[in-house]
Computed example of a mutant assay.
Amino acid sequence: MKLTTRALVTPFAALLMTATTLTGCAQAGGSSGKGAADGLAAPAKKDIAMQLVSSAENSTLDWKAQYGYIEDIGDGRGYTGGIIGFCSGTGDMLRVVERYAKSRPGNALERFLPALRKVKGSDAHTGLGSPFARAWAEAAKDAKFREAQDAERDASYFDPAVRQAKRDGLGTLGQFAYYDAYVMHGEADADGTTGFRTIRSQALDAARTPADGGDETAYLDAFLDARVDAIREEPSHSDTSRVETAQRVFLDEGNLDLDPPLAWKVYGDSYEIKSS
């Protein structure tokens, strides 16, 4: 979990990536958006969600190439790595490595567990450094490591975000808006950041959820407004394009089902997912 603008990739990070080129941690209305029972959890929609997040986190739609990504982006959260930017400073990177150690005992990352526990809550690299970064990148070749990242993403971010969105009566776009907020801000507030719970609370001050009889578009507008405010409060990050020229575009188009074709911009770069 983190806030990140990863438009530039350091030479060191480029050497560590397991994929080709990279081009984000923290703690009455109703619509056709509720048409599909699975919503964002449907495989095709989940893949769209991952592409959207990757456009903001890695400046590419190729999210499956990001398992080996790792670098310190200077946001105060230590190392950022993997498919949604797990961070050494926030503890989710530690949980990924713990999951990996359970499924692949003796792997090359396991020896860094004590160091990851010590640096949690800080931006320190103590006991990690380039040996850890190289081991992380190398581990991305192992399906067990990729599964550990997938499992941590789902347990800490995707599943709770989608559950809450469904409880609020939101369709696929709203579920994605919640998920992206979880990824970037985490669930709860941390020092200097505003978490998902507060963002949602601020949205509820301005509009009712569809589950409470409110209009879905009006509520999502309020949620995105609160999200933009949260991004602007973050000392190291102020670019709101992942909301204003992406999610807000889909909302203004009335695309509450998040159906392709989709066209959006993040950090000035243009992206497109075509119809299947």
Rank of each mutant, 00 (worst) to 15 (best):
P235Q: 09
K102N: 07
T126S: 09
A246H: 11
G214Q: 05
A151C: 08
G30A: 14
D205L: 14
V243L: 11
Y100C: 01
T126F: 03
A140G: 09
R248W: 01
Q66V: 14
T90K: 11
G39L: 08
G129M: 05
G82Y: 11
A226W: 09
G74E: 03
F158W: 03
Y267W: 07
W63L: 07
K45H: 10
A139C: 02
E216F: 00
K265Y: 12
R6V: 09
W63R: 04
E71Q: 11
M1L: 09
A13G: 04
A211M: 12
H125F: 01
A188N: 13
K274C: 00
F196I: 01
G174H: 06
A190W: 13
A28W: 02
A218P: 10
A188V: 10
S238V: 07
R227K: 13
S238K: 14
L52V: 13
I199E: 14
S201P: 03
G186V: 10
C87Q: 11
L109S: 00
G129F: 05
V162C: 08
R227S: 14
R242L: 06
D47A: 14
D159H: 01
C25Y: 04
L173H: 07
Y219S: 02
T23L: 11
A177W: 01
A56G: 11
P11D: 10
V183K: 03
S59R: 14
E147L: 15
A263D: 11
D72N: 15
F12Q: 09
L3F: 14
A13W: 00
I273Q: 00
K166S: 06
Y179R: 11
S241E: 15
P210I: 06
G106L: 03
T245P: 13
D47F: 08
H185F: 12
K2E: 08
M1E: 08
R99H: 09
D229C: 10
Q66K: 14
E234T: 15
G29V: 06
I48G: 01
K34Q: 07
A222R: 01
T21S: 06
T198S: 14
A188S: 13
R232H: 05
D38M: 10
F145C: 14
P43I: 01
A101L: 06
I273A: 01
I231Y: 00
